[in-house]
Write a protein that binds this DNA or RNA. Structure first.
Length: 740
DNA sequence: GATGCTGCGCAGAAA
DNA sequence: GCGCAGCATC
């Protein structure tokens, strides 16, 4: 294989074969190149079986790209490698071995909507008040728990003494029971159940850790505790684990990513080789200097400085807008100018924002100017109601135990089956331990359901059961046609005769095309694999490069991508950085990394904009410029608005946050993620430390409370005050007395 | 049981 | 300024 195209650091990484290896890969330093060449090198130079190679990514898009790049190096043997996302690889393992822990290979995956429906379902069953506790908060809490390996049992052991946690414990338990009963897993379960399988059936783990002699992980800084453990276990035999990542691009703390996984790699894998890739092949020096200047403000990071052989390039362009409309007009005006006067296409330009709502003003102007564009994310095809309905029908066909899908479609299209009927059906099913689908087949035994309603339900049952029998015998397209025909889904939309309904019909036909294409592409096509694939699709996966249009997306969605021209917009306090970072240093650091990610997406031109005023909840509010603008090297910046950044910043110096401004931290105070059985310690108490979690204390202003956590490094205390909620306080400053 | 209207709460990023 | 949930009405 030709290694001449690689720089020395890249070559070193490619040639390192055995043992744990961490490649610290700065933005644009060619990490995918290193990963693919390394894998090809294993096969070609070391005769490693392709089937003993695993490569894990975070998006399907990244996985597909990696697969095709490896394939161009080593050919069709690539198909024997396991290349995919954590979720997809876990599905593969669970389909094969999930039966050990009570899951049929036909289990379905619940997306966030299904998950919400199930949580709601459990709320009802437990008679919980959804006005007091929003359903969504429990949904998030379950996911957070799972990300940190906190099962209902572990959670209960830790928090059963706290009366405020009782409802949640009950709900979490029931939720887990029902998932199992429905033969369903949520996103997080895919990992947790795989780990449970490995724990309870060592022979299963033995099989996989023998099989995968070389394991690769992309974007290692984004791994959460469960993913970390998955990697540890599967590499525990050969310890040939090759991870690539960049702590400065860790932006998924909110979904459980733990930056310590990459920071502590050497500790976790003694004798690890560390290789740094610092040469950047993407951006101009000015762009890199700006990015380096911002990220330097984060303490405690691995030192790393991106450099390039490219020229300094254009200066960074700055514009202060009057409001979000003015901001949008400026941006689209610039794009038009770039297309007219320079050699750029609309698709060379990306507009990156912090929150999805910011796309609206931009879209308005893009529409007015008739500029083609594409919003990444937003309302996705698979989130549309009609698509979800059809998919729910298919899930139910595959897995009759799936009560959530049953409830979704039993009255869709309308069959005159309402709440009362559902209640009777549910009671009947529960008494006899049946699934709702099974119960619907015995509808004539149920008291109180008769006539038209009973007939409709019986027919529904018959449709599902007869289609299920055909799944393995017919082409998916045929089954699909029959499903549409017999359920009258399209027919009922046709009767509506509205543009909206016509759109839905088009979408359903589009779904049929997608299924047929899937069927052609697979060796052993199956509806259940199609369902898994669609559920696990990400926003990034849907980005198509074919169309020529301006791309609009959140900063999060932009990670891993690059564009000749980048507009980084809405650089305002409490928007970017988010208001949630106001009094939370760690959050702020994450926002700063996000800023770093945004800047380093740009190849040639970078624009920074913010508005003096912005509509928020329909109210016109004055805004102050982002502190990140203040952290940038002004010498790199060129002014395009009335006033220079320097003069704007001088005027709006952010005031020092006062001690009493500290807001309650939103996180669950009782939530100490390190209490899971396999966890690494997060808060190590120093010897003789005056404070420990659980201590009762008093504070001059906030009164009495209890210490929840003690940060090992900063010794900052998280305290729940009886009357003031949760605060983070530094005992070196605040006067805190322990009551013993 | 279906449909249409009102008002509340909201919008942080997602596989 | 919008979407969804809940309620009133047919």
């Amino acid at each position: 294989m030709d290694l001449n195209g690689l720089n020395p650091a890249q070559r070193e990484a490619v040639l390192a074969v055995d043992g744990p290896i961490l490649v610290v890969a700065g933005a644009g330093s060619g990490k995918t190149r290193v990963l693919t060449h390394r894998i090809a090198h294993l096969v070609e130079a070391h005769d490693i079986f392709p089937s003993s190679i695993m490569a894990i990514t975070f998006t399907n898009k990244a996985a597909n790209e990696m697969k095709s790049r490896i394939e161009s190096l080593v050919g069709p043997v690539t198909s024997q490698m396991w290349v995919g996302t954590f979720h997809a690889l876990c599905v593969r393992i669970l389909r094969r071995d999930g039966h050990h822990i009570g899951y049929s290979s036909d289990f379905v995956i619940y997306d966030t909507t299904d998950q919400k429906a199930l949580v709601k379902n459990c709320f009802k069953a437990l008679n919980l008040d959804d006005k007091q506790t929003p359903i969504q908060s429990f949904q998030y809490k379950i996911s957070n728990c799972k990300n940190d390996m906190m099962t209902p049992e572990v959670y209960e052991t830790n928090f059963m003494k706290d009366p405020r946690e009782r409802d949640f414990i009950k709900l979490y338990k029931l939720y887990q029971e029902r998932l199992k009963a429905n033969q369903a897993m949520d996103f997080d379960d895919l990992l947790l159940k795989t780990l449970e399988l490995f724990d309870r059936y060592p022979e299963v783990l033995e099989y996989y850790r023998n099989k995968f002699k070389y394991v690769h992980v992309d974007e290692y800084q984004d791994t959460n505790k469960a993913q970390y453990l998955f990697i540890r276990k599967i590499t525990s035999k050969y310890k040939n684990v090759f991870v690539v990542g960049d702590g400065d691009q860790s932006i998924y703390r909110w979904r459980g990513a733990d930056i310590r996984n990459i920071q502590d790699f050497e500790k976790d894998y003694p004798g690890a080789t560390i290789i740094k890739l610092e040469q950047n092949y993407r951006s101009t020096q000015n762009i890199l200097d700006l990015a380096n200047g911002v990220i330097k403000n984060n303490p405690g990071r691995r030192d790393k400085n991106l450099w390039t052989e490219a020229e300094a390039g254009e200066k960074i362009r700055y514009y202060q807008a009057y409001d979000e409309k003015d901001e949008a007009r400026f941006i689209i005006g610039q794009i038009k100018r770039l297309i007219r006067e320079e050699e750029f296409k609309p698709s060379d330009c990306a507009i990156l924002y912090r929150t999805n709502v910011q796309s609206r003003a931009l879209e308005d102007v893009l529409n007015i100017e008739a500029m083609p564009y594409k919003v990444v994310g937003g309302l996705k095809f698979y989130e549309r109601k009609e698509i979800k309905d059809v998919l729910a029908y298919m899930k139910l066909m595959v897995n009759g135990a799936d009560d959530i899908s049953f409830l979704r479609v039993i009255n869709e299209p309308k069959r005159s089956i309402g709440d009362k009927t559902i209640e009777k059906l549910t009671d009947f099913a529960r008494e006899r331990g049946l699934s709702l689908l099974e119960a619907s087949g015995r509808v004539y035994e149920i008291d109180g359901i008769s006539g038209k309603t009973a007939a409709a339900m019986s027919e529904f049952h018959e449709i599902i059961v007869s289609l299920r029998a055909k799944i393995d015998l017919s082409f998916a397209g045929e089954v699909f046609d029959e499903l549409i025909e017999r359920t009258q889904i399209i027919a009922s939309y046709e009767r509506e005769r509205t543009d909206e309904a016509d759109g839905r019909i088009d979408n359903i036909y589009e779904l049929k095309t997608v299924i047929e294409e899937f069927e052609k592409r697979q060796d052993q096509p199956g509806i259940r694999d199609f369902l898994a694939e669609t559920t696990l699709k990400s926003d990034q996966d849907s980005i198509e490069a074919v169309e020529d249009g301006v791309l609009l997306m959140t900063l999060h969605a932009s990670k891993g991508l690059e564009f000749p021209v980048v507009f980084l917009v809405g650089l305002e306090q409490n928007l970017f950085p988010s208001y949630r970072a106001q009094d939370d240093e760690e959050e702020l650091e994450e926002e700063r990394r996000l800023c770093y990610v945004g800047i380093t997406r740009a190849e040639k031109l970078l624009y920074l904009t913010h508005a003096k005023n912005r509509n928020h909840y329909g109210r016109f509010e004055p805004r102050t410029p982002s502190r990140f603008l203040g952290e940038m090297n002004q010498l790199l910046i060129e002014n395009m608005s009335e006033r220079t950044l320097a003069s704007v910043l001088k005027e709006s110096k952010p005031k020092e946050p006062s001690f009493y401004d500290i807001k309650p931290v939103k996180k669950n105070p009782y939530f100490t993620p390190d209490m899971g059985n396999n966890a690494k310690p997060e808060t190590v108490l120093e010897e003789g430390s005056a404070f420990a979690p659980g201590d009762k204390i008093t504070h001059k202003v906030f009164g009495s409370g209890m210490i929840v956590t003690v940060d090992a490094k900063s010794s900052i205390l998280t305290i729940v005050f009886d009357a003031h909620g949760i605060k983070k306080l530094d005992p070196a400053i605040a006067q805190i007395k322990v009551i013993r």
